[in-house]
Computed example of a mutant assay.
Amino acid sequence: MKLALLSDPNTENAQAAINALLQSLISINKHSPLRVGYIASQPDPHREFYQQAQQMYQALGAELSVYLELEGGFSQQSLECLLNCDAIHLSGGDTYRFLKGLKNRKLLPVLRQYAINGGGLIGISAGAMIMTPSIASASLCGDINHCGLDDLSALNLVDFMFTPHIDQAQLQSDQFQQQLAVFKQQLCLCPDDSSLLFITGKVEQLGVCQWHLL
């Protein structure tokens, strides 16, 4: 599988991870530019975040041209186009709402099979948490389950959980350490300037992450 888990896509290590993943896809798919699809975590009426991502991928020599929304704007045609892309970008945003939308559309097994079949997945913040066994760790970065989601199980493409946007102040906080102690599974605490890349069958860390129960 080819996966990138990022906190902030605009940092040097995030860009390096995305570029490495795209380059690995070029060696397989033999066409340029690569086609990237985008799944919005929640409605983006003016496509502001989508357009920002378009510019980022264009700078990396790829073409982001498929937009999929999970709520009122969902389109089966867009889904089919998305699954024909070389890579899929899972956006940031409300992690609980994102997962609920994917479950409502029954897309978790579809995306999991896409990744198993060799398609690249690039997860930004909430999108990165979606790629793990569970989004329960979203609470550590301040997400609140406003949508009443009961089942927090996600794509389960890696064997650890992920929390983005971690800083030293949090790590040194007694309250945060108490929250962290609840988690009995390996957990990556990823600052904004770090990222994880999974291409060769093992996780490569770009930057410095902290690991709980490593």
Rank of each mutant, 00 (worst) to 15 (best):
I199K: 10
S125Y: 06
C85Q: 10
L6Y: 09
M131Q: 08
G119P: 05
L157I: 03
G201F: 11
T11A: 03
L34M: 05
S7K: 10
V182F: 13
A136L: 10
P45K: 14
S194G: 01
T11S: 05
L22A: 00
G72T: 05
Q52S: 08
M56V: 00
Q54I: 00
F176C: 00
V182R: 12
F183S: 04
L21M: 10
P191G: 09
K103T: 12
D174E: 15
A154E: 00
Q178E: 07
A126R: 04
F160V: 08
V203K: 15
A87M: 03
K106R: 15
V208D: 12
L83Y: 01
G118A: 04
I166L: 03
L3K: 03
L25F: 01
E71G: 02
Q172C: 07
Q186L: 12
A14R: 02
C141W: 12
C188A: 15
G207C: 06
P133R: 05
C188Y: 12
A128C: 06
I135N: 01
G92V: 04
W211S: 06
P109C: 01
A115G: 08
P109L: 02
L64E: 05
L149E: 11
D174W: 07
L171D: 04
D86I: 03
E204N: 14
L180V: 08
L121K: 12
G93H: 01
D193A: 05
H146I: 00
Q172D: 09
A181I: 03
